[in-house]
Amino acid sequence: YWDTDENDNESGKKPSELFGKFTWRIEKISQVNKRELRSIVFEVGGYKWYILIYPQGCDVHNHLSLFLCVANPDKLRPAVVNKDPKKSKYSDTLHWFWKKEHDWGWKKFMELSQVLDGFVVNDTLVIKAQVQVIREKKSRPFRCFDCTYRRELVRVYLTSVEQICRHSIEERRGKLGKLIEDKVRWSRNHLSREKTEVILKEVVKQFFIEKEVASTLVMDSLYSGLNMLESQSISKKGRAKLLDTEETPDPMVSIDKDMFVLADDMLLLLERAILEPFP
C-alpha cells in the first residue's frame, strides 16, 4: 500500500521532487566560538532552506540546539550523523512554516556530552537534514517519500504511533459504545455512507492541523491504511494477498467512488468497531 511516483497521479511536482537531503560538515568544531552557525542555503521542493545550530545551546545549557529555517509551509527532519550509523540521532517533526515562524527545531536537540561521544570525529560534526515539502491538501493523508528514512522512522516511532492511534480509536469507541445500547433506533439502510473527503478532512485535521501529533509516520500510517481500504474495495485480490501472510479482519468500511460505505449490517459493524481488539 505504499506507492511510487509512477502511480501518483496528482498534479504538480512528483513526490521525488518534493524530497531532498542536505549534509553539512562543520570542521574544526572545537574552535568555533560563535553563538550560532548557519549552513549554506539548499533547495528542496522549490523552497530554500538552511540549518541553524547553537553549538553551546540556545537559551539552554549543555545542549546543542538545532533548527531548520525557511519561509513557507513545510515539514522537516534533521539528524546528526554518528560514526556508527546505528547511533545516529534522528528527530522527526512536522511543521507549518509561516512568515512569523520561519524556523523550527529543538533547543535541546542533544546533550553536549553526547555530541562528543562519536558525533564529533576528527573535530568535524556532520549534520544531515532530510526535508519533505507537503502539498497543501487538507483532505488526504500524505506519505513519507524516502524509503530509507521511513524505515528509520518505523524503528524509532512505531510505538508512539501505536499509542496515538490507540488513544484516538478508544476515544471514539467510548462515544460509539453509548449508541449501541439504543438498538431500536438504528436500521440497516440509514446513515451508512459519507463522502470520503468530508471524513478525511477530519482525519487530517485531527492529526496534523491541530498538531496533536507531530510525526510524519502517523500520517504515513493513515495514508497506507487508506490505500489498503481502497485496494480492498476495488479488488479482492489485494486482500487475498494480504491474508497469505497474516490474518486481517474484514474491512468494516469500503470505498465506492468518492464515498465511504459501511461494509455490513450497521449494528454488527458497530459491535466490531467497539469490541474488536486493537490491531
Binding site: 501505536e162 484516538s168 451508512s192 455512507r193 468494516m252 490491531p279
Partner: peptide, 28 residues
C-alpha cells in the same frame, strides 16, 4: 526483513483502523 514487513503491516493496519473508526464516529 520479516521484522520490517511485520512493522509495515502493523503500521498499515493501524492506519486502516483509524480511518474506519473516524468513518463510524462521523456517521453515528
Amino acid at each position: 526483513k520479516n521484522a520490517i514487513e511485520r512493522d509495515e503491516r502493523r503500521l498499515t493496519e493501524l492506519g486502516r483502523r483509524c480511518v474506519e473508526i473516524f468513518v463510524f464516529a462521523h456517521i453515528f
